[in-house]
């Protein structure tokens, strides 16, 4: 199988010197295309740091990160932007929609930066919104929608241009249990359709639905297991 993510001995150290924080401490992790991986750990264990690394928002202090065969550990800001645009669909805990834009415009954003022509862009965005069941909410602004709906818009945005990796950081952290279940179902459906999903959570109940569970603690990988009881 194709190795999509290959993190090799990566460290991320904040405030090097005096009271340094080793947010990632010699982490190595490979993820193949089509996997559904949950990364779980306690608060402060380094999950978000890892997510930023995997999502090309951050570069490691040491070590190498190969994404889709490219060494992305030492790229310039603009190169990283392009890689993020092409390879990663982000789903954030706080939705991170732009309040002044409609649902459709939010979903179109990555396509805008991709340089997709307007017509095609709108079509792709509409299709993505239909996938998450928001075909009838396209012209609504985020503040006119419930948390669950906002997160679905964010998912539509993440899948609109079909990036190889879906990267979700606590996607249900701000949601009630009903909406949470809905969102997880959508993510699982996307996985079943063949997408690679990396899901970061501190909720074991959510993690155990993934095929593979990576546990992280104090910036290190404590365990990396195939989950036989995965419920997808």
């Amino acid at each position: 199988m194709e190795k999509l993510v290959d993190v090799i001995d990566v460290c991320k150290i904040y405030n090097p010197g005096e009271n340094e924080v080793r947010a990632l401490d010699h982490v190595s992790l490979s993820i193949n295309a089509g996997e559904f991986v949950a990364i779980i750990g306690q608060s402060g264990s380094g999950k978000s740091t890892l997510m930023n690394m995997l999502g090309c928002l951050d570069t490691p202090t040491s070590g190498t990160y190969m994404l889709h065969g490219m060494d992305v550990s030492h790229m310039t800001d603009n190169e990283q932007s392009d890689v993020r645009n092409r390879e990663i669909g982000f789903i954030f805990q706080g939705f991170n929609l732009i309040q002044s834009l409609t649902a459709l415009e939010n979903v179109e954003l990555p396509l805008v930066y991709r340089g997709v022509p307007r017509k095609e862009r709108t079509q792709l965005a509409q299709k993505a919104l239909q996938v998450v069941g928001l075909g009838n909410r396209m012209d609504h602004r985020p503040q006119e929608m419930s948390g669950g709906q906002q997160q679905r818009v964010a998912i539509a945005r993440a899948i609109a241009q079909a990036p190889p990796i879906l990267l979700a950081d606590e996607p249900t952290g701000n949601l009630d249990s009903g909406s949470s279940r809905e969102i997880i179902e959508i993510i699982k459906k996307l996985y079943r359709e063949g997408r690679t999903v990396i899901l970061i959570t501190h909720d074991p109940g959510i993690a155990k639905q993934a095929k593979r569970i990576v546990t992280i603690s104090d910036g290190r990988i404590k365990s990396d297991i195939i989950n036989p009881d995965a419920d997808v």
């Binding site: 999502g55 800001d77 392009d82 645009n85 991170n96």
Partner: peptide, 11 residues
């Protein structure tokens, strides 16, 4: 931040 995460370049 959102725009950058989604692939906006500096320019």
């Amino acid at each position: 931040g959102i725009r950058k995460a989604l692939g906006a370049r500096t320019d």
